[in-house]
Structure formats: structure tokens, C-alpha cells
Design a protein around this nucleic acid. Structure first.
Length: 498
RNA sequence: GCCCCGAUAGUAUAGCGGCUAGUAUUGUGGAUUGUGGCUCCAUAGAGGCAGGUUCGAAUCUUGCUCGGGGCACCA
């Protein structure tokens, strides 16, 4: 084979092929997304895969811009393959929102592209459900998006205890930092966001000191951090580290290590010891929403912070009404999207230990539309990628085994009954999924064919039966056969296929 | 962008310096003209790409490509 062609046939890195068996798995997720969005009364829209590069550059950060697929059209205009849907949605809204009564509830299942290195739960091209409520800044809108997402994740196959929605408020975080008179808010948020990493780095450094190889230390420290974060303070299944060294000691010390490292980082950017300690204590507040609200209320804070706390409390009441409170936690250390979001932010995390990445993430972005010149239009929304969810469900073995779509295989025994067989197939297709074999194959071969494809029922059409206006209906699994009048065929099949 | 592991027919694999590349399964055609999934026969199909070492490379080596995992980054 031509060598160049051979390379080409491998396909483009990080871009996927979906063979029917593969697609069937993704379809479970897609169906959940479409069905639940519809259940919630969201309207389907779509946009172009190509956008002007400037549309993305306007709002998304530099990093996103560099990892976007870029191309030029004939006029040498800079275009991109859309890396996310929100800019396109904002464009649609800016252009024509006056046509639509508010709030707008729209959803979309676009294929989006990012030219970045693939790893678990991340490829260069994926489907990402976007659901947004535009035109109200009511906390119930955020709660509804969370309820919608919860429902999609559960319908796709995860159980309540296998995922969690962690919620924070950028408003609250920022106003608290302001209350503490901290200027470098962005840097503080960045440090808080990377808390786990400080622990990991400390463990890694210590392992190297104890004589572990650098690459080994990295892996062990990573495992340790992951388990610890998913299951803090509980003693379970820590990796082999214990047998390899006296690392079991870390179990008790992780909280202390984290505190020490994070505080050092905070002080290194100029916070006073008092500020540092208040910020750190604040980030420790997390858990079930009711408890967090109580903890927040006991803090000594200013009016703006109080207002933000009240907003969180209001959100809580809607989460209760929508019956998703059991799936939610408040966590003051979640930062997300440094400059994009304006209010509540949330992300859905895996609790089964399968994938460290977020299943979905979203938040309130009240200024995005305005920044495109569209007037003050508040909005909140979520993006749910299909890859992380698929990867978790796959690991948990939740996908049903592949089934051929056809329920019925219509076999003609000889060429002379072909027209009659074709008519029967045509009629049956009004109610069923039907494979018709018009190729003049011998019956034995058609039986084998239907068997190979696991099609459960076969209708055998031959001259003998046909002379009496009958056909043979065979159950492929049991091998049982009956002859039925053509006029009774649908009735008979309805009973078998429910 | 960086680091680790990997790559042999569609799939799963064997060989690890002597290849005419083996096996299983799948595909195609047939044995079997109204009853399959068994069996038998025939047939098709492979060392990711490019270079180096060597008398000789699937095997050793370098770069690239693709796949898996991680870092950084990010939704």
C-alpha cells in the first residue's frame, strides 16, 4: 500500500470514528440529552461550525485562542472551528433576541473542536450539550439548569451517589476577599483553585527526598492526591504506597501539609497572616448546602457578603423544590472560569473514582451578551461534554450490549415471490424496523445472515404459503415457526415486539 | 507544549537478527434448490511511516505519525 495513504488512513489525532457499536453507546447519552432537554421545555437551535476568529477572541482567553483550530477562507479572513458554543449563542441572542419572549430556554448539541493534547476524558473534537436560560437573573434559573443536568446524568446511567454537583458563588468569593481588603483577588483565587496541587507537590518532593525515582514519585503523589480529594479523611484503598515506605503517615498529615503549603503560597503574594488565615478557613467551608449556609452565617462579614450569602440561601430553597438538593454540595474553594462567570458557578464531578475531570460545568454569565453590544441580558447555562460521561459509564460497564436496529428480517425464498415479499416489507416498515433481503440468496444463507446480525424475527416468504395468502414467521431465538395469514401479520408481530 | 507506555491481517495474537511472517476468528465464494448459527473446502487479508546499524531487520536504533496514560492548560 502507498505509504502516504497509509498514514492518512490513520486519521487525525484526537478525532474519532464512531462505528455502529460505538455510536450506540454515545446514543444513550445523546438521547438522554435530547429527551431531558425536551422534557424541560428547551428549544433546539444550531449554529455554524465555523465562526470568525474574532468572535472567539473577544471573550475567551488567550489560551483558548491558541488551542483553537484555525483556517483562512478564500478572502483570507481568519476563521475558527468553534471551540465552544457560548460565543455563537451570544451572537444569535445579540442579533435577534427581541423576537423571543424571555426567558429564553434553548439547548444545542454541537460538535466542538480544540487542538489540544488528548488524554482521558478529553479529545480534540467532542459533542457538548449546551443548555441556557437567557433573560432572567433569578436564582431559580440556576437551580433549574442544575436540575436539568442532574436529570440528564441520571438518565444516561449514573446513580445519585455516583456524582455530585459542587456549587460556589463567584460573587460571594469576591465580595469576601474585598471585605478582607485583599487586592490581588485573581491571584488568590488561582491559588485556592489549585489547592490540591500544593499537597501533591509536597508529597512528590518528599518522596524524592526519600529516594524514590522522580517519575515514580509523580505518579504516586498524583494517586494519593486524587484519592484524598475524593474521599477526605476516610481510610480506604490507599495505593501501594504504604507497603513501599512509611507514607501511611501522610494520611494524618495531609490536612496539615495542605494548610502549610497553601498558606505559604498566599503569604508569598503579600497577604498578611491574618488575611491568609481567614481566606484559608473560608476555603475549608464545604459540604451539604444547609450546613454551609449555617457556617457562612456565623462569619463576621460586611453587607455585600451578607447579600451574597442570602443569594446562596435562596438558591438552596429552589434546589430543594426541584429535588436535587441531595446531589448538591456547596464548596467555597471552587473557582472555575476566572473571568467568564459573574455569579453562581457549578460543576458536576464523578464520585466513582473513574475520571478526575468534571462531567459538566456551568454558571451565570450576566455580562457576556452585553459585552457583545447586546444590552443587559443576564444568562446562565451549562456545558455537558459527552466524553467524560461516556468514559465513566464505560468503566462502570453501564452500556447495554449492542443490538441491531432491525426487528424483522424478510426473506424471500425464490425470485418469483420477490414482488410479494417486497410489498410485505414495505407494509411492515410502517410499524417496524425491517431488513429486506432482495438479493436472491438461498434461504439457509439468509437464516445465517439474520442470525449473525441478531435480528429476532424472520418472515419467510415462499410460494407454498403464498398460495394460501400466508407467510412463515420464525422466532430466531427459539426456532419456533408458525404460518400466519398476511392480513394477520401485523397483529401477530405486535404481540411479539412490544 | 512536555513526560511515560505502546503499535504485526477487520479483530485477537505468535515470532524477538535468517520471513517464503504462523495461528484463531472475521470477510468473500462454495459443499447445502423451503429452514441458519456445527462441519468441510476454496479464497482474501498484516509488521504505522521514514532513516540508521547489519551480509541479512517484523526483531536492534533514531525521528515522525497514530493510540493509551499523566503534567501543564482548559471546558
Amino acid at each position: 500500500m502507498d505509504s502516504e495513504l497509509k498514514e492518512i488512513l490513520k486519521g487525525i489525532k484526537g478525532n474519532r470514528d464512531f462505528y455502529p457499536e460505538d455510536y450506540a453507546e454515545y446514543k444513550v447519552i445523546f438521547d438522554a440529552m435530547h429527551n431531558i432537554s425536551k422534557q424541560f421545555g428547551y428549544e433546539l437551535y444550531e449554529g455554524p461550525i465555523l465562526e470568525y476568529a474574532k468572535l472567539i477572541e473577544y471573550k475567551s482567553g488567550q489560551n483558548l485562542a491558541t488551542e483553537t483550530y484555525r483556517l483562512l477562507d478564500r478572502e483570507k479572513r481568519k476563521l475558527v472551528l468553534r471551540p465552544e458554543m457560548t460565543p455563537s449563542l451570544a451572537r444569535l441572542i445579540v442579533n435577534q433576541h427581541q423576537r423571543y419572549p424571555k426567558p429564553i430556554r434553548w439547548y444545542c448539541l454541537p460538535r466542538v473542536f480544540r487542538d489540544e493534547t488528548p488524554q482521558r476524558g478529553r479529545v480534540k473534537e467532542h459533542f457538548q450539550l449546551n443548555a441556557d436560560i437567557i433573560g432572567v437573573n433569578h436564582p431559580a434559573a440556576d437551580a433549574e439548569i442544575i436540575a436539568l443536568t442532574t436529570s440528564i446524568i441520571k438518565t444516561a446511567g449514573l446513580k445519585d451517589e455516583e456524582f455530585v454537583c459542587v456549587i460556589n458563588s463567584r460573587e460571594l468569593l469576591q465580595s469576601y476577599l474585598e471585605f478582607l481588603d485583599i487586592k490581588k483577588k485573581e491571584e488568590v483565587i488561582r491559588i485556592i483553585d489549585a489547592k490540591g496541587k500544593y499537597v501533591q507537590n509536597a508529597i512528590e518532593a518528599d518522596l524524592i527526598k526519600k529516594g524514590f525515582k522522580s517519575s515514580e514519585s509523580k505518579v504516586l503523589a498524583q494517586q494519593f492526591r486524587t484519592i484524598w480529594q475524593q474521599d477526605p479523611r476516610k481510610e480506604k484503598n490507599y495505593p501501594d504506597i504504604e507497603s513501599k515506605s512509611d507514607l501511611a503517615q501522610y494520611l494524618d498529615k495531609l490536612m496539615i501539609i495542605e494548610e502549610k503549603e497553601v498558606k505559604a503560597a498566599l503569604e508569598s503574594i503579600g497577604l498578611s497572616p491574618e488575611q491568609t488565615s481567614k481566606v484559608y478557613d473560608f476555603t475549608l467551608i464545604k459540604g451539604i448546602p444547609q450546613d454551609v449556609i449555617v457556617a457562612l452565617k456565623s462569619l463576621e462579614v460586611g453587607d455585600r457578603v451578607k447579600l451574597a450569602i442570602e443569594n446562596m440561601e435562596e438558591l438552596l430553597t429552589y434546589l430543594e423544590s426541584f429535588d436535587v438538593i441531595k446531589n448538591c454540595e456547596f464548596d467555597m474553594s471552587i473557582a472555575r472560569g476566572l473571568d467568564y462567570y459573574t455569579g453562581v458557578v457549578y460543576e458536576f464531578l464523578d464520585r466513582t473514582g473513574s475520571v478526575a475531570r468534571a462531567i459538566a460545568g456551568g454558571g451565570r454569565y450576566d455580562q457576556l451578551v452585553e459585552s457583545f453590544g447586546g444590552g443587559k441580558i443576564p444568562a446562565t447555562g451549562i456545558g455537558i461534554g459527552e466524553t467524560v460521561l461516556h468514559s465513566i459509564l464505560k468503566k462502570l460497564n453501564r452500556f447495554p450490549s449492542y443490538k441491531h436496529p432491525a426487528e424483522i428480517y424478510v426473506a424471500a425464498i425464490s425470485e418469483d415471490v420477490m414482488p410479494a415479499a417486497a410489498k410485505i416489507a414495505r407494509d411492515l416498515r410502517k410499524d417496524f424496523s425491517v431488513v429486506f433481503n432482495p438479493f436472491g440468496w438461498k434461504l439457509s444463507r439468509q437464516l445465517e445472515d439474520a442470525g449473525n446480525r441478531n435480528i429476532p424475527n424472520m418472515i419467510i416468504i415462499g410460494k407454498r404459503d403464498l398460495d394460501e395468502d400466508k407467510v412463515t414467521l420464525r422466532d430466531m431465538k427459539s426456532g419456533e415457526q408458525i404460518t400466519v395469514l398476511i392480513s394477520k401479520l401485523k397483529e401477530e408481530l405486535d404481540a411479539k415486539i412490544s
